[in-house]
Design a binder for these strands. Structure first.
Lengths: 138, 138
DNA sequence: TCCTAAATAGGAATAACTACTATTAGATTA
DNA sequence: TAATCTAATAGTAGTTATTCCTATTTAGGA
């Protein structure tokens, strides 16, 4: 996926295509790390283009969340991480020692019988496992 | 369960039985609301006994978490909630409109095949569903 | 009762995020 | 292409939950 793919989604909603928005998308597409904090996004952009406001990062991240383009994650510390939705839906195992995370394909929602979520309109869900990864166990 | 039950666990670890610690346990045992924020715990105590420090609440909450007596929950806003472990292990469905939560008995960990969490020492996990509850849907 | 390490009170500090407002600039229209 | 209008931005101040710091107090053992 290229930036253009996401740009079209913004245009379809009548949103303006600002350089700031394009930069945020570029950072996610070019980063080897899938999970970025707002501050990391901001830092990567200001390296190249100083002067971008952190407020703009937060404002656009929540815009992109609403559009379903990125997902907000919470790995226990009290800072949000953000992930571009360009892979299959998945969950995470997070190492509490080194902080690395691996993806889990298993999604509990698919295994719950419909009775259990009856009378509830699911908007989102989270499932993460915390512990010690193989590397840190040795 | 009474306060004494938990007090014994503290004593078994050589920890001091301070009035502050007893009050924190009492608040959880007497509260109709299972999920309390640190501030709510603090407020309920200072109603009766002014002068307790918020720092003491936080310090003891994390002590009780380490002892496995309470569990820390995260319902999406950036404030932690705390729950006394005096019921069966469960997860939650949280209404994003009214904030109420219902318990889910289903635990994904039990349904994952062991291959999926191989080479990973699980310490804790979270599974919560967010959406609109029956009351708020009407 | 005395002693000592553990625990506490009170307030300052921090970190992540949100709100505010004057200014700028996409994009629509003529 | 230029004018216009409103969304979007920069910069900064404010907020909130939590943690840190240090002098003082106290629980529990000797």
């Amino acid at each position: 996926m290229k930036v253009d793919y996401y740009i079209k989604k913004l245009q379809a909603r009548g949103l303006k295509i600002t350089p700031q928005r394009q930069e945020i998308l570029r950072v996610f597409l070019e980063s080897s790390n899938h999970h970025l904090s707002a501050e990391e996004v901001h830092n990567k952009i200001t390296e190249k283009y100083p002067g971008m406001s952190l407020d703009t990062v937060y404002r656009n991240l929540s815009l992109l969340i609403n559009l379903g383009i990125i997902t907000e994650l919470n790995f226990g510390d009290r800072k949000s991480l953000f992930e571009l939705n360009n892979t299959e839906h998945h969950h995470h195992m997070i190492c509490t020692k080194c902080g690395n995370s691996q993806e889990i394909d298993f999604c509990p929602l698919k295994f719950m019988d419909s009775q259990q979520v009856k009378n509830f309109k699911v908007e989102k869900h989270c499932f993460e496992i915390f512990g010690i990864c193989a590397n840190c166990m040795e």
